[in-house]
Design a binder for these strands. Structure first.
Lengths: 354, 354
DNA sequence: GACGTGAATAAAAACGTTTTTATTTTCATT
DNA sequence: AATGAAAATAAAAACGTTTTTATTCACGTC
């Protein structure tokens, strides 16, 4: 009854501590803390106050065991096989940051699972579901036909994808309007007199690679010109790929007079390639890029880009996942962002002849 | 006894399933699976086989509740207040990837906690300990006197830091030999005839900022020359900062003839600054950089750098944390990497007059 | 043959919750 | 005053483990 041990190494207070302290049963405590309507307001107040005082924090493991939930959101982070070119993936910092911000107020925490390829991603997703490692999943690098989306849609497991597949499935997603961005970039160059335009693009199975080709082609067809489809380079998004593609394309019999780059990594490579061939950006050749991390402004010369703050995508991903995990209909959780054009001095299109 | 329901939605097998299946008690099953010596080998074999067959996977939540462990490793990821300049933090993708690789074989998973500053990091660390959100912590951006290290050392909570503080404490860490790198870069430029050398450095409270100044100063003093301490710029590591510093320094009465940059982000900024002042790297000005993500090769011109694959740091961090969480003495868990010099054409030091 | 010993296994308790079920109390209605 | 419903709370069970304690059994020893 009256043990006077001075509690030398006290363990954190549990619901039981609160029960002893307030005189209520643990059941009542639990309900009160979750603001259940069955417990009297006065009781709730007393319990809240006591909880506040002793700094009670619900034990996540206990909750997890009982409810079957993990209070974890998982993100599948690709780590590319291309080791020598390490720029790839830099935008993930932004994505993580955005997601974390969205999760901040909630009880959810973010866990990272690196994956090597889509296959690996599929297995990881399945493991997450089967072993109950997380309550929801976010992933990117969506293929035109992506098995992860099929799997998760079928299992009805909460997830949000960064990017869309080409199947008519209903699922929560966030994306960039790549078709539009490629269209706008191409149309802009065509309007500037260019006819031979190169597109530095990711590999074909990626859904957004195809979106970009669609936009690219549409711009030509709306202008009534034949598309320079022979100038589409497809590869990993490394700086090396950008450089080698640029050099290869410019050495051809019918070289491009302008480049559209998929991201800043390839843009840097293209600029490096142009430089080593002695070509001047803005004079000999125009370049328009898609802008990941807002660094194109510092290229020499600065490059005109389409910019979309990645962190915003991340925040939206996080919000959508929370809503999805709360049971919301994926139908309503879809957003496609249009990047904004940032004109920089390199690009004085229209001022020069075709 | 003989219910013929076709088990339409079976839940994953538990230890109890195994008990029923094999006829042993759940206690024996648990011990067998953990390979306890008290259970007979034949029994173990039978239980392992059964577990294999039904694909039994231990429930992480049950384990967590009982053992008090979380099987989570936490990383504190800084998200800088500098929103406009988003390159910052790109190397975190590499770090995460490395840590994940190290954790791969283990039962541990990696969870990300974003922090806004050191203060926030301190609170987050405390919360992780108090609420038992993880069994170990990794963090970076170490200050010369870092409260997080004090806190965790005192609490004896397992952690590994990327970077060292300047207090003589014993704790697991991984670091780059910044003193040496700065010394080597400075000495190289001095040997090439430079006397007025600028150092683009992070802000002072950061431990490695001071390490770099130490190395910088030592190179001068060993050469018997007065250090160009007036040419040390301190700021955030954004590209903008690099650009503005370069422009500012070059406009001074006694401008630098060479730059040492802390990372590729600032390097790009410095190059941008040089470009807009019409200076030629490798002719008018030399630049040596520290290389995060191996992209300096594609700058125009390519820049000589000190390179250390960040992923290796990440892997080491992960390994150390695992060992630390297994109870290993932090005394033995310390590693300081020396980056390797990558000479690129821009840097033909010694071939020109002072 | 009783007895201790050691090996093997089983039973029970515990971790901290939530949820279902049971009990008590209050109070209006007859 | 008895009855019943509603409100409030308590008790108990459950989630899936691990660990401590208890039981059973075989065997060698006195």
């Amino acid at each position: 009854m009256s043990e006077n041990e001075p509690a030398p190494r006290r363990s954190p207070p549990t619901i039981k501590t609160l029960a002893e302290l307030t005189g209520y049963s643990i059941a009542t405590i639990s309900k009160a803390l979750r603001d259940s309507p069955v417990v009297a307001q006065a009781t709730k107040d007393a319990i809240f106050k006591a909880a506040q005082e002793i700094g009670y924090q619900a034990n996540a493991r206990g909750m997890a065991l009982r409810t079957g939930k993990t209070y974890q959101a998982a993100i599948l982070m690709p780590v590319t096989a291309v080791r020598d070119y390490e720029w790839d993936g830099v935008e993930y910092t932004q994505i993580l940051s955005g997601i974390s911000q969205a999760l901040e107020g909630s009880d959810y925490r973010l866990s990272v699972h690196v994956i090597r390829d889509v296959q690996d991603g599929c297995e990881t997703a399945r493991r997450i579901m089967d072993q109950g490692l997380a309550d929801g999943i976010i992933f990117s690098g969506i293929l035109a036909d992506d098995p992860r989306i099929d799997l998760l849609v079928e299992s009805q497991f909460p997830f949000v994808s960064l990017g869309r597949c080409r199947k008519p499935l209903v699922y929560a997603h966030v994306d960039i309007d790549n078709e539009w961005a490629a269209f706008a970039a191409t149309a802009r160059l065509i309007a500037g007199g260019h006819r031979r335009i190169a597109l530095i693009n990711p590999q074909r199975p990626l859904s957004y690679a195809m979106d970009r080709i669609d936009g690219f082609s549409r711009a030509f067809s709306e202008a009534g010109i034949e598309a320079s489809g022979d100038l589409v380079a497809e590869g990993d998004l490394s700086t090396r790929f950008g450089r080698e593609s640029a050099i290869d394309l410019l050495r051809r019999a019918k070289p491009p007079t302008a480049f559209i780059c998929i991201n800043e990594s390839t843009t840097l490579g293209v600029l490096s390639g142009l430089g080593s061939l002695g070509r001047q950006v803005g004079t000999d050749i125009d370049v328009i890029a898609y802008d990941d991390i807002n660094v194109s402004a510092y290229f020499t010369p600065p490059i005109t880009t389409f910019y979309q703050p990645i962190e915003v995508l991340g925040r939206t991903l996080g919000q959508f996942l929370l809503q999805r995990m709360a049971g919301e209909d994926p139908q309503t959780l879809r957003q496609v962002f249009r990047p904004t054009l940032i004109e920089r001095q390199s690009d004085n299109l229209g001022g020069r002849p075709a």
